[in-house]
Nucleic acid binder design. Structure first.
Length: 415
RNA sequence: GCGGCAGUAGUUCAAUAGGUAGAGCAUCAGAUUGUGGCUCUGAGGGUUGUGGGUUCGAGUCCCAUCUGUCGCCCCA
């Protein structure tokens, strides 16, 4: 028989590491509560249109990274490659903005992109994200950044870089776009092939190029921040001031554009030197037009997401993983299978008292059970041998000190 | 999707110039028949990722494929 294995780019989260996942989830849940964000869970697949209409037809995600298939009814379905569009769909569908014009949401779950796997880049990966719907103001952008930083710190990460940029509003971006295309056309012959194609489809993304010759040319490219209109400028300036007032360190990266078409105004990204070339572990931005694109009414919004696997890599590489292992309170050992009912009785009483208790189910010898208890880091064992069984007693042994004493059955209540 | 590197017991690795696989750790069991950890002894466990090819003979060479990894594209 051929051995079956998991699909390329997917990973089992095994019992040995599940603790770390729970650690991150619990911390993030706590911080989200402090910021008054509510958890939301949406399906992991959506109609393909949800993503087509939001992410952008010319983006790599839509073009080559989506898991799209026809279901048995002939409908085109896509495993979600990101959450923002799906959340907006849900908010519109369920009229969540009906009773309040402000909505704070967070989510945690799996996402899917068909990419060549690498460390920190999987086909099924997990994200935590938060979205703030309903405010056009930079205070909202700032709140999400505050939240993001609180989350990062809550799991012990203190070294990271925050990059910000502004893409301006629609108006500014159009003007800049024209200017940029003009510049790119003038230098077309010197650009990489990739960039020459992208210049036609999605010129802003050329800025992201890592090709050496592109980078060189782009040094003289027009800078988007110089094309912001008054409104856009004010928005970006205010955000910067808010961040500065709280002594949040950031760098302005005028080439930061991010890979989704729906962003406007602020975009930001978190990077760590503890990762390889996939050094970004989170990012987000403002998306004021997405609601309309998905058939809702115009609603300004801002949000961000973290890659859980990348956070775990940072924790691992920085030696920040928390200690797991919570040993059972008791191991009830029986010398002989004949005492099984007595052992179960004791075990059940202890469990009803809220203790975590383990017993042998594979008919191991007394010695083996003790070894087992030791391996499991149990510090207290209860031993039922012939004498204890006959006299309605039990032996309580401390494995750390090796002290042991015989007690009457009723004193189980005092454990 | 493109390029480089890698793939041997659960795990970390070893195997001279191609001659039919070994060790540490882990696992399990014993060391006077009611007691763990330390120590000692022993045992189980691999059709060398998979499929072809070259060869008298391949873990070792060649091809393909799968998976991982590094970089690119891109992103979390």
């Amino acid at each position: 028989m051929e051995k079956l294995q998991s699909i390329r780019g997917t990973k089992d989260i095994l019992p040995d590491s599940i603790y770390f996942w729970q650690f991150i989830f619990d911390k993030f849940k706590g911080i989200s509560n402090q910021f008054n964000y509510k958890e939301i869970r949406t399906p992991i697949f959506e109609k393909t249109e949800v993503f087509h209409r939001s992410i952008g037809e010319t983006t790599d995600i839509v073009n080559k990274e989506m898991y799209t298939f026809l279901d048995r009814g002939g409908e085109s379905i896509t495993l979600r490659p990101e959450a923002t569009a799906a959340l907006v769909r849900s908010v519109i569908q369920n009229s969540l903005l009906h009773e309040s014009n402000l909505l704070r949401l967070w989510y945690f779950g799996p996402f899917f992109r068909y990419e060549r796997p690498q460390k920190g880049r999987l086909r099924q990966f997990h994200q935590y994200g938060a979205e703030l719907h309903g405010s056009p103001f930079p205070e909202a952008d700032a709140e999400t950044i505050f939240l993001a930083i609180a989350l990062i710190k809550s799991i012990g990460i203190s070294k990271f870089k925050l990059l910000i940029n502004s893409l301006g509003n629609e108006n500014s971006r159009q003007i800049y776009r024209k200017e940029l295309i003009k510049f790119l056309q003038e230098n077309e012959n010197h650009l990489s092939q990739e960039s020459q194609v992208r210049m036609q489809t999605n010129p802003l993304r050329v800025l992201d190029s890592k090709e050496e010759r592109d980078i060189e040319i782009l040094q003289n490219a027009p800078i988007i921040l110089n094309f912001l209109d008054e409104e856009s400028n004010l928005h970006f300036d205010t955000l910067k001031k808010i961040l500065q007032s709280q002594e949040i360190n950031f760098e302005i990266d005028t080439k930061l554009v991010r890979g989704l078409d729906y962003y406007s105004h602020s975009v930001f990204e978190f990077r760590s030197t503890m990762l390889g070339s996939q050094d970004s572990f989170g990012g987000g931005g403002r998306y004021d037009n997405l609601f309309e694109q998905l058939g809702g009414k115009q609603t300004p919004a801002v949000g961000f997401a973290f890659g859980i696997e990348r956070l775990l890599l940072i924790l691992e590489n920085a030696n920040l993983l928390p200690n797991a292992a919570n040993a059972p309170d008791y191991y009830v050992i029986s010398q002989n299978i004949e005492y099984i009912h007595y052992v179960n009785k004791i075990t059940n009483i202890l469990r009803e008292k809220g203790k975590s208790v383990i017993t042998d189910v594979s008919r191991k010898s007394l010695k083996a059970q003790l070894r087992d208890a030791n391996k499991l880091n149990v510090s207290t064992v209860i031993i039922i041998g012939e004498d204890e069984f006959k006299n309605n007693q039990f032996t309580l042994k401390n494995l750390d000190t090796s002290e042991q004493k015989i007690l009457e059955f009723n004193s189980i209540q005092n454990l």
